[in-house]
Amino acid sequence: MTDLALIIVSAVFVNNVIFSRFLGLCPYFGVSKKLDTAIGMSMAVIFVLTLAGTITYIIQTYLLVPLNIGYLQTIAFILIIASLVQFVEIVMKKVAPTLYRGLGIFLPLITTNCAILGISILSVQFKYDLIETIIFSFGSALGFGLALIIFSSVREALDTREIPKAFVGAPIAMIVAGILAMAFMGFSGMVK
């Protein structure tokens, strides 16, 4: 049990996907202008990443390893993720239309979120078992959500402030992210 708790704490705070692993930066800068969209994106990522982590683990353990075709990992994983996202979109539209209206526009964007592929490959590299993979994927997605929601709140507040003209837009966003990353460095050393 403590092992699983450590995996969560490590994935959310210490090795945060954004601030320490540098995964999923495109949606991080792309959809962080408003708090509402940031919350929607975080929910979609938590859902898809947990699912993708689980399925890629099953494919890796029961298909790629027994057939000795580990070198097809990159191709197999990206195709699984792309079709999974499409599948989730279709199912959600039919089964949960309200949820689909909330998350719908974020789903296609998730295919190119490198956090999904990155975390799937990492859980294979770390040699996690099924339960650990699910916890690790969920925790990483939670860390992404946390980082995105904090960041978008700061950016919303920045909209009403006067900042030097050369800093407006992307540069100030980068600098805010840098300062947040420094804050998150305070967690380092807590768990491995």
Binding site: F19, S20, F22, A170, P171, I172, A173, M174, I175, A177, G178, I179, A181, M182, F184, M185
Partner: peptide, 12 residues
């Protein structure tokens, strides 16, 4: 990690 964001920010 923070230096990556800061450097790119100031380059921009």
């Amino acid at each position: 990690a923070p230096g990556a964001f800061l450097s790119l920010g100031f380059i921009l």
